[in-house]
Design a protein around this nucleic acid. Structure first.
Lengths: 203, 203
DNA sequence: ACACAATCACCAAGCGCTTGCTTGCTTAAA
DNA sequence: TTTAAGCAAGCAAGCGCTTGGTGATTGTGT
């Protein structure tokens, strides 16, 4: 029994199934705590089959992170397209970033912070992709600083901002009362030091 | 050959040696990537000996985190004793926190973010200790908000702040040009939205 | 149109190694 | 003599990964 389904459209996406199963498990329990058998089972395969699509578990991790970064970048570009106001752009960037972090129903989640196991070469590739991801952020921060809405847009500010947002995976629970919209507003308000500005609902 | 050294003062601290070796390795390579054999070797023991002092690897992790939290709390309390100005208190809290994160030459480092492997009971104990650690922070933020130096001291603000600082383990390199003092100034300035205020040196 | 080779995607089985942890014993100190 | 602190050896389980084979699909020559 070589395969289960005869639908070629489904068959062509089996590699993507492995990728997505791995992504979800890596998010939920971390890279090291996830076994390749877990991934295979989640994708409806036997224990050795993921290695037909990926050379090693580390290769799989690298692919998951790069694909997550690419998808997040695409969503981000689409979201800020045509938005000129830097403050609105910042809010959108923050909002989509939080979505990529917490709504892993979407194509593929952001998995920064799980790169420790990777070798230097893989880290470099991921860093390059992340640099591209950050370009609109720095531009927006620069614009805000030029407009006097932000005291400084020096590089550490961007890092602090990403720290705020990325660390939210350690405490934010999507099933709680705080929505991602409210979370985004709060983050932007905290960074800009102003009074939280709600968008359509009172904060 | 039951032991190597006959110095009783040294002997009494063998358990602490295991603790410290584990702490350093957990910081450097993460909990899951560190084997109990690594820890034993770092402490100058055979592979099974750590289990005389700790029931399990998870028990060891819990002890490491709790001791790191307790030491950091003690350093923090000592640092802010007698400091009345809330802005200066914030800077000291941030500075000592960054030191606990990055200078693991000190007694025992902060190891938040490695709790995933622990069971619910251990997580509760650690959360309780961390709540105590956060008390001076919230008080200081409240004072700053009352003084009009901070727009809001609502709970998420404290979480954003800890996110900023804790995430710095992913990018800050102590051997770089940026000192911990400058880092602390930058973080405080970013949070308060003002111009970075240097303490004794130009920023 | 049809035989047939090649290929794709996967399974069944398991290999070699590492892991956390245990057991029985030993030595120095109290 | 008893206890504290550790060693030497190893066990059972689990790990990433490999191997050889198999049915379905695709491509090719006639």
């Amino acid at each position: 029994m070589g395969r289960r389904k005869a639908d070629p459209a489904t068959d062509a996406n089996r590699r993507a199934d492995v990728l997505r199963s791995a992504a979800r498990l890596f998010v939920e329990q971390g890279f090291e705590a996830t076994t390749t058998r877990d991934i295979a089972e989640a994708a409806g395969m036997r224990s050795g089959s993921p290695f037909y699509h990926f050379r090693s578990k580390l290769d799989l991790l690298k692919a998951v992170i790069l694909e997550g970064l690419a998808n997040s970048d695409a969503r981000q570009q689409a979201a800020i397209a045509g938005v000129a106001d830097p403050l609105e752009r910042l809010r959108i960037l923050v909002r989509t970033h939080l979505a990529s972090l917490h709504e892993f129903d979407c194509d593929s989640p952001l998995l920064i912070g799980e790169t420790r196991a990777l070798d230097a070469a893989a880290k470099r590739d991921i860093a390059a992709a992340f640099d591209a991801y950050q370009i609109p952020w720095q531009a927006t921060l620069d614009a805000l600083a030029a407009a006097g809405q932000l005291a400084s847009a020096a590089p550490p500010v961007r890092l602090w901002l990403f720290g705020m947002l990325n660390w939210s995976t350690h405490w934010y629970r999507p099933d709680g009362t705080l929505t991602l919209d409210a979370l985004a507003d709060s983050a932007v308000a905290t960074l800009l030091g102003g009074v939280p500005q709600s968008h359509g609902s009172a904060a």
